[in-house]
């Protein structure tokens, strides 16, 4: 946490630092939670929002201040901590919910917050969903297969990037493979395009309609789509389909992106520019 603190302090003005330190002391010394609740919300009036990058992840000053406020008073048992989190969570506005969920990996006790994390995934506000889904170790560590798979599928539905999901390759599973193929088939049937990142988690295909789709986008698709097919073809033949020959004839030299991360990143950039 030291690098987070020093990074945060670099981005705070003198008066912000004074306020932050004073409130840290007050929260630590407080007998009840009133000070924490008040300061947690008051952050928006006192701390100017600035971007802070720590460990390649994008945070905002207000989010980090909130995280340190939550950690200011050490709790000795999980239940007290969970209760504190619950109270902050049920009255949080969107920015506060995002800060609370983004901070999940940094809490002293996390296991009991599984329901809150899932609730974040169900949110209608995409940034709250992303606070759980991307650059967060919590899902990989605690989500069961069902919750994980729903998270991946929803990411595709709302154009949230897959490459930023920690554990995206490690947690691949057959049920997810099936869900993604079914989803791809729905898109194909409706003549809609398929987010090329979808194929990252697909390892087992038997439906010819998907092969035809691959052939179609490989000859007429955009760079993202072509590169994705190129990456599929690099997988062992047994994994995809032993009898399917199209993939083995692909030459990789002309493809623009060479890893799934590159595709995901470029796609995200393009979406932002649109």
């Amino acid at each position: 946490m030291d690098s987070y603190l020093s990074n945060l302090l670099k981005h705070l003005s003198e008066s912000e630092t004074v306020w932050f330190n004073k409130k840290m002391e007050l929260i630590k010394a407080a007998e009840n939670e009133k000070e924490l609740f008040f300061s947690f919300s008051f952050v928006q009036r006192k701390i100017e929002r600035k971007e802070v990058v720590v460990d390649q992840r994008k945070w905002f000053t207000d989010e980090l201040v909130r995280l340190f406020f939550i950690l200011a008073k050490e709790e000795n048992d999980p239940e007290t901590f969970y209760l504190k989190f619950e109270k902050l969570f049920i009255t949080s506005d969107s920015k506060e919910s995002i800060a609370l969920l983004k901070s999940l990996p940094f809490y002293p006790y996390t296991k009991g917050l599984l329901n809150k994390a899932s609730e974040g995934l169900r949110s209608n506000v995409s940034d709250i969903f992303k606070a759980v889904a991307i650059f967060n170790e919590f899902p990989q560590k605690y989500f069961n297969e069902m919750t994980w798979n729903q998270m991946i599928l929803k990411s595709l539905f709302i154009d949230s990037p897959l490459y930023s999901i920690i554990g995206i390759d490690e947690k691949r599973n057959l049920d997810l493979n099936r869900m993604l193929c079914d989803y791809a088939l729905e898109r194909i049937a409706a003549s809609r395009s398929i987010n090329p990142e979808l194929w990252r988690c697909v390892t087992d295909v038997s439906d010819n309609r998907i092969f035809s789709e691959w052939e179609k986008v490989f000859s007429n698709g955009n760079d993202f789509e072509k590169s994705a097919i190129g990456l599929i073809s690099k997988r062992s033949k047994e994994q995809i389909s032993p009898s399917y020959s199209m993939l083995s004839n692909i030459s990789h030299e002309k493809l623009r992106y060479n890893t799934w991360d590159e595709i995901g990143e470029a796609l995200e950039l393009e979406r932002k520019e649109l």
Binding site: K34, F38, S41, F42, Q44, R45, K87, T91
Partner: peptide
Amino acid sequence: EILPRFLPKEG
């Protein structure tokens, strides 16, 4: 009891 939790919120 709960009003103080909302009064300092953004907006």
